[in-house]
Design a binder for these strands. Structure first.
Length: 433
DNA sequence: TCTGGGGTCCTAGGACCC
DNA sequence: TCTGGGGTCCTAGGACCC
């Protein structure tokens, strides 16, 4: 590696934009009374804390803690608690991303609340000032506060983003190019906070006396490649300013699609479980048709409550190839129920069932033989009619082959907010005097 | 009483083929 | 005594991400 990244004009410029405490911020946008109050959002089934406002963080509420462990604290400190409302968060995310894409043609939506921006076309601009504009426009149009980190590689932009959030929360922007010596920042940056370094790697690096980003940047690339693999080598290169991970503006199509949820209460009967399998299959197939894909394989799994003290945990799963690639809800339900019957053991109380569609391929790629082609055409027409009705009149207006039990598998969501931006009846009311 | 869900990539090893 | 070599595909497990 030819020493440090040079400062020539060929260097990359990019930013990572990250929405602050995204789910909690979404809740706040529509309920101004929540501002300056501690807010937390819970995972599915109201199980764990998955988002916290700064005030909630200050109370010592950790990411991922089971809600029951902080219930008393939450009550005492008047924490505002919400079930997760993915319809709302997904729609808010779309709005934020749309605004970001008006600032550069090169965007990569990395997650529901993060986006990489390529700035190679903006070499003559003051990127710090440009980022102030971005931040202010997103804030004005959506109410969501964002942090922006700027650097020459994804790893460094991520790192800069974290510095912005931790050290300059009011400014919300940190540009590594503004630093006379970027190594000063790296020297104080813990290695475990680097993107791509998880708990396991951090432990092993610590045994090698590597504790900071600067130490990793200067470590032997070849040695660490042998010990950890190419992923670590790429991190080291990126810390040195050499970009190994391009901004992917075209989202790659998914290879798997999963739907797995815990139930509000434990279920024992096959009929109850079938109800869940019907519902999850429908969700998956709709997603599959939206992304214009078909599945070739299906995996179903089933488990009891792993935290139960009365019974040994049990889990089982089975994979099956489908007769032919499909995104037809009835076909998937049929196969999933078949697998369910095979892995189901009577006499147990189940907490969770999941379905993973595997080996996805693009809709157009599969050529059915002439015989099944006619059938498929009819089925396709039926599917798109169903999708249209459900889109127009709400999820699950039309369902396939009604299961015997209707809702025993449903999740707990006792504290859900309204779908302010996607359902007419949930529009916030404003009283004008 | 109460403990989330959905993904990706890389690697090593075995099967198989020529 | 002495038993090829190279390539591909698949899978399971481990690591990571949000």
């Amino acid at each position: 590696m030819g020493g440090m990244a040079d400062l020539s004009s060929s260097r990359n410029l990019m930013a990572l934009v990250d929405c602050n405490n995204f789910y909690a911020s979404c809740e706040r946008v529509f309920q101004p009374r929540l501002s300056a109050k501690p807010v937390v959002v819970l995972s599915n089934n109201d199980g764990c804390v998955v988002a916290r406002s700064n005030e909630a963080k200050a109370l010592g509420i950790k990411m991922g803690v089971p809600f029951f462990e902080i219930r008393d604290l939450a009550e005492k400190k008047q924490v505002e608690v919400f079930s997760s409302n993915y319809t709302l968060y997904g729609d808010m995310s779309r709005r934020v991303m749309e605004i970001l894409s008006s600032f550069t043609p090169e965007t990569e939506i990395y997650s529901i609340d993060e986006c990489f921006l390529g700035f190679n076309g903006f070499r003559n601009r003051d990127l710090t000032a440009y980022s102030r504009e971005i931040r202010s426009r997103v804030g004005k149009y959506t109410g969501i506060p964002v942090s922006i980190g700027i650097g020459p590689t994804k790893v460094l932009a991520k790192l800069a983003n974290r510095v912005a959030k931790k050290q300059y929360p009011d400014i919300g922007i940190f540009n590594l190019f503004d630093q006379p010596d970027g190594d000063v920042i790296l020297r104080d940056f813990p290695v475990e906070d680097i993107w791509g370094v998880g708990r396991r790697y951090a432990e092993r690096l610590s045994q090698l006396h590597i504790h900071t980003a600067l130490e990793l940047k200067r470590a032997s690339r070849n040695h660490l490649r042998r010990a950890f693999g190419v992923v670590m080598e790429r991190i080291i290169l990126e810390l040195n300013g050499l970009s190994c991970m391009a901004i992917e503006t075209q989202p790659a199509s998914k290879k798997n699609m999963a739907c797995a949820r815990g139930f509000g209460r434990e279920l024992s009967s096959l009929e109850d479980l079938e109800g869940a399998v019907h519902a999850y299959s429908s969700v998956l197939c709709e997603k599959l048709r939206t992304s214009k894909q078909m599945a070739e394989g299906l995996y179903l799994f089933l488990m009891t409550n792993p935290f139960s003290r009365n019974a040994a945990p049990f889990s089982a799963g089975k994979f099956s190839k489908l007769v032919e690639p499909t995104n037809d809800t009835s076909c998937i339900i049929e196969k999933a129920c078949e697998l369910l019957r095979e892995v189901y053991r009577p006499g147990l109380s189940y907490k969770r069932v999941g379905i993973i569609l595997m080996d996805l391929l693009p809709d157009g790629e599969y050529q059915p033989d002439l015989f099944s082609a006619v059938n498929q055409k009819k089925r396709r027409a039926a599917m798109s009619a169903v999708d249209g009705l459900n889109k127009r009149f709400g999820k699950a207006t039309v369902q396939f082959g009604l299961p015997k039990r209707q809702g025993d598998w449903k999740q707990n969501r006792l504290r859900e907010s309204s779908r302010y931006t996607t359902i007419w009846k949930d529009l916030p009311m404003v009283l004008a005097k």
